[in-house]
Nucleic acid binder design. Structure first.
Length: 423
DNA sequence: TCTGGGGTCCTAGGACCC
DNA sequence: TCTGGGGTCCTAGGACCC
């Protein structure tokens, strides 16, 4: 019995989340912005039709926003994260196994659904998600993940499909593949698309039928797997359990540049706190800590970017300890007279946070630190993120590094004080 | 004219994804 | 003036060892 995958993908997810709680947005051009309200990271179909590309900076489209009365929203991750959870919960009821691939996508194992029922089944999934969460989704069905991705794309593109396309046992598979640009194949980015086009391979069908050695030589094993998947041979099975994380990063850009080492230090401490929370949530400790700072990457003059790597004497997830090391790291790379635009921390060499082997000269009371962190996490879980923070991250005024969200919608589903009201 | 060779580990960088 | 953030995998090349 061969495998069948469905890829369920939420349409313009962030925009759709906003629309669930603000029905007036239906049919209007809507965009959702990145941190600091910098770029458009989600666009409704109407906004896409106006030509807004993904990631376009807001300042470039300010005039168009006004003339077309575009509805603009800051990112609201509390809302999107919770809506995602609801969508995934719904999807999980339609398949014995499923892989949550990203905040707005999941692969479902539909191998047990009879072939002639697949399309109808896809429509049932689509209807259920719409009814139970308010989010519109598209469904692509095929024998491999790569083909399911393609089916999904075609389902979104063509009105005829109603958002569900089944490519299994399809007699027009060749025609379907020919309709998909090579750049839209899963695994083909800007670089490869350029290269392939130069060599006369412009659509997915031509890529499938390309010379294997040619692809292998220029794109490595990833390329040959892609060919196999396009031919219908599965190389990427469903991954039900998320693999253990290899690293954790927290970094932010600043709305305006920062010169002050005090401010920079506060920002780094805040990112360490956030990262350490993530470590503890994953139940791991970091063996290596990296700190980095950089000036505006879009300005060549007086550009500076540096990174310090610190091997920790004992792997840890203790916020206070990590803040101390990060501070040392920052001092090592900080240069006066630069206008910093971004800073961050990375945790690597993650190890399971079971019983920790003490270093020979380790003078920290690890048991006490663990209890303290547990108390910290439980308070912040119960009373809201940021209820209890380390003073190193600064207390209130003049924090020029804080991320700006001027047009954020309420946390409709995760905060009692911000529930939507019906009148 | 000759100047070993092969395996493993690590890292940096490049490509991709959302 | 204003340009996001967090990941993965693969490969090539250097260091090191026998």
């Amino acid at each position: 019995m061969s495998k069948v995958f469905a890829l369920v993908d939420c349409n313009n997810f962030y925009v759709s989340c906003e629309r669930v709680f603000n029905p007036k947005l239906a049919g209007k051009p809507v965009i959702v912005l990145s941190n600091n309200d910098g770029c458009a990271v989600a666009r409704s179909n109407e906004a896409k039709a106006l030509g807004f590309r993904f990631g376009v900076p807001v300042f470039e489209i300010r005039a168009l926003i006004k003339t077309h009365d575009i509805q603009v929203y800051s990112s609201n991750y509390a809302l999107y994260g919770d809506m995602s959870r609801r969508v995934m919960e719904t999807l999980s009821q339609f398949a014995p196994e499923m892989e949550i691939y990203s905040i707005d996508e999941a692969f479902l194992d539909l191998s047990d659904v009879p072939g002639d029922c697949l399309t109808a089944y896809g429509r049932r999934i689509q209807a259920a998600v719409r009814q139970w969460t308010g989010i519109p989704v598209s469904v692509g069905i095929a024998e491999t993940k790569t083909l399911a991705k393609i089916a999904n794309r075609l389902a979104k593109q063509s009105k005829k499909t109603g958002g569900v396309l089944n490519l299994t046992a399809s007699s027009n598979r060749d025609r379907a593949l020919a309709e998909v640009e090579v750049a839209d194949v899963w695994g083909i980015g800007r670089r490869y698309a350029e290269f392939l086009k130069k060599n006369g391979i412009v659509n997915a069908r031509q890529l499938r039928d390309a010379d294997r050695e040619f692809v292998r030589g220029r794109m490595g094993v990833v390329g040959t797997r892609m060919l196999q998947e396009l031919k219908g041979f599965c190389c990427y099975p469903l991954e039900e359990n998320p693999p253990v994380k290899k690293g954790i990063t927290v970094s932010r850009s600043f709305k305006a540049g920062i010169e002050s080492p005090t401010q920079l230090n506060e920002a780094v401490a805040a990112y360490v706190s956030r990262g350490a929370e993530k470590l503890r949530k994953e139940n791991v400790a970091a063996g290596v800590l990296m700190v980095f700072v950089m000036t505006n990457r879009f300005k060549q003059e007086r550009y500076y970017c540096n990174l310090e790597t610190i091997r920790l004497p004992v792997p840890t997830s203790d916020t206070a300890e990590l803040i101390r090391y990060a501070g040392e790291g920052l001092r090592a790379i900080y240069r006066r007279g630069y206008c910093y635009k971004r800073a961050g921390v990375m945790f690597k060499d993650l190890v399971s946070a079971g019983p920790i082997q003490a270093g020979l000269f380790d003078d920290r009371d690890r048991r006490r630190s663990k209890k303290l962190m547990q108390a910290l996490d439980s308070i912040n879980t119960q009373m809201g993120a940021g209820t209890l923070t380390h003073a190193a991250a600064g207390l209130g005024k003049g924090q020029r590094w804080r991320t700006v969200y001027k047009k954020r919608s309420p946390a409709y589903t995760t905060n009692w004080a911000q529930l939507p009201t019906v009148v």
